[in-house]
Nucleic acid binder design. Structure first.
Lengths: 110, 110
DNA sequence: ATTCTTTATCGTAATATTGCAATATAGAAA
DNA sequence: TTTCTATATTGCAATATTACGATAAAGAAT
């Protein structure tokens, strides 16, 4: 496969796709939704809730963290994972911006 | 690889991840942004703008269409692809909902 | 009817992702 | 220190994704 090189697109487009890639798996969507449903967020809970082995959950958490969607704070023996509000705000802005531009467009086509 | 079966997660989580998967590639982000930047949207233009071969662009367009992010109208010899405003609205709702729930949460952790 | 133009599909090769078992790491508890 | 508990990393195997060339399909133009 001739790899799509990062320089083929803008750095911003590349990073945007990376954030969406982090959400492009049902397990990671489930993690986000689980984190949202509890007040305290300990990783151990997540392993119990998901139908996946611990190393697999750990890997999914790492990807969400790398994308900036969650942040993890070491809390003694456990790690407290939480959704990063800032990134959620950025995503809202991203789609709000698309929506605003669509409203300005000539809607003659489609 | 033991596949993650759809029934391991909710149907909704699965479908949500599919929409994000459609945006999880810089080429597809670039396509969305290009469609946003022009009033008339013909596929031929997209092939010229992207650093990818025509069959590859066609495939990316298909994935965006399958995810409901764009819609294509056959217009004689060409196809007019446009962003589906409805899906953008759904995505705004998705993240607004997350944001609202975060604001209600006990922020003692993280 | 033939040719051109545009888009889609197929075949195949390369790379990326996902999953789990095994193992490592590191702080807590004993 | 030794052991327990929680999380991360590594090593592989299986599957999915991506890319392009070749080709098909279908309407437009001649």
């Amino acid at each position: 496969m001739k790899q799509t090189k990062p320089q083929d697109f803008t750095e911003e487009q590349y990073q945007t796709s990376q954030v969406f890639k982090a959400l492009a798996h049902p397990a990671r969507v489930a993690i986000i939704e689980y984190l949202l449903s509890v007040d305290t967020c300990i990783c151990g809970d997540i392993v119990d809730v998901l139908p996946l082995a611990q190393p697999t959950v750990s890997r999914h958490l790492k990807e969400l963290k790398n994308a900036g969607l969650i942040k993890g704070t070491i809390e003694g023996n456990t790690i407290c994972y939480c959704i990063d509000e800032n990134m959620i705000g950025q995503l809202i802005n991203y789609f709000e911006n698309i929506s605003a531009k669509l409203n300005l467009k000539n809607q003659s086509c489609c």
